[in-house]
Computed example of a mutant assay.
Amino acid sequence: MREVAVVGVGMSPFVAETTQSLREQTYRAGRAALDDAGLAFPQVQAVYMGYLWEPTMTGIRFLKELGLTGVHAQHVQNASATGAGAMLEAVRAVAGGHADVAMAIGFDDMNKIAGAGLSKNSAEGVILPAAFFALWAKQRQLDYGTTSETLARIAAKNWNNGALNPMAQRRPTSPITFEQILGSRMVADPLTSMMSAAVGQGAAAVIVTTPELARKYHPGRPTVLVKAAKMRTETMTEGHVFAGPVVGPQQMTRDTAQDAYEQAGLGPEDLDLVQVHDAFPIEELVYYELLGICPDGEGDKLVLEGATELGGRIPFSTDGGLIGRGHPGGPTGLAQIWETTLQLRGEAGARQVADPQVGLCHMVGGGSVCVIHILQRAD
């Protein structure tokens, strides 16, 4: 297996509504990634397109805007982890020698969501995401005494990180406080509307190649290596609940993280920043522990210490996460790669983490699936 490097990243802004067509947004994201890579589309040998809410042939139709080159192309779909899954396939194409240059591109308009294709007669079709994660939050309150204020502080952090990201859907003009978060409309106790992911539309793209080619195309720029690309579904355990609405058991993230750390030859102590599936702040809080950043039950302490804020020991959701940056669906996991790549290059502007070397990107998807990538800067 060959080493793999990120050579180009691109996004269109994530927005609630836009006058641009989704087709145009996708073209702009792909074009931005090509420009960032210093490549022309005919040099791309494989493309993996991630989307959820558009008709089956949409990906190929959108891809034609970039060129008619006979390129290998596949459609990837895995709920919220769709973009991350497309990235994993592009990485594997290069690592396995099937392509020297591969693109992952995702797009979606979550305003078009019409259910997740699940029967209303099943638990998965009845329990909506807000209710599901409210159950996580209630259990957490019982187990560890987590307060609504802790959840609100995570959400406020992500709103304020989004304000620093020109591609974010939510860009408040003044700092958001945890009191504002708590005072917003209740959705599913204890989760409020301002604790919920921003849904809208957008597109993102990532281009990967070998480190040798990445250095050839950009000899003066830090090379960002993909040290791990791992995916898991849930694993049978004693007393396993088979009806796993939304994202399934928490253990799936812990197991995938261990796989990724082993592949990368790194551990949680090596991470300088992390992006996670924070559709609601209870997720980010739980993932502090499942990713091994701190022992079980001590995530609340990280929040109160400010450890996961910009300038803290281990910043999370530096671009605003799903709460601040937004969550259109298909492109979300690729937006995480966009952010982490810019951070590792030192190109993240006002939200730049001080001299980061390693970043982790985590997405879960309904069904259930978890995808984790670990990126490392190689000067």
Rank of each mutant, 00 (worst) to 15 (best):
A307K: 12
V371I: 10
I282H: 06
A279M: 15
L302H: 02
A348P: 12
P249Y: 00
D278C: 11
Q352H: 15
G265E: 03
V286I: 10
Y261K: 03
I337R: 02
G366A: 14
T253L: 09
L291Y: 05
L334P: 02
A348C: 14
G367Y: 05
L334D: 04
D278S: 09
I282N: 07
G321A: 05
T332K: 03
G349F: 11
R351Y: 12
G365Q: 05
W338C: 07
G324K: 04
E284A: 04
L304N: 15
L304A: 15
M252V: 03
G365D: 07
M363R: 09
I314V: 15
G366I: 00
G346N: 14
A354W: 15
I337S: 03
D270I: 08
G306S: 08
G346V: 12
D355R: 14
L304I: 11
Q258D: 07
R351S: 14
G297R: 05
I323D: 04
C294F: 04
E347L: 13
L266V: 06
C294Y: 04
A335C: 13
R351I: 12
L302K: 05
L271W: 02
L266M: 11
L291R: 03
R313G: 13
E298D: 11
S368T: 08
G292Q: 09
G312L: 06
E347V: 05
L344S: 13
G366W: 01
L285G: 04
H327M: 09
L334I: 08
G333Y: 00
G349T: 10
Q251P: 01
L290W: 01
D355N: 15
V358W: 01
R325L: 13
D300M: 05
A260M: 01
L285S: 04
R351D: 12
L342D: 14
P331K: 04
L344V: 12
L360Q: 14
L304F: 10
I337T: 09
A257I: 02
L285D: 03
E339A: 11
D270N: 13
I293M: 15
L285V: 02
V353K: 08
L342A: 14
Q250R: 13
M252R: 09
G349S: 10
V247Q: 09
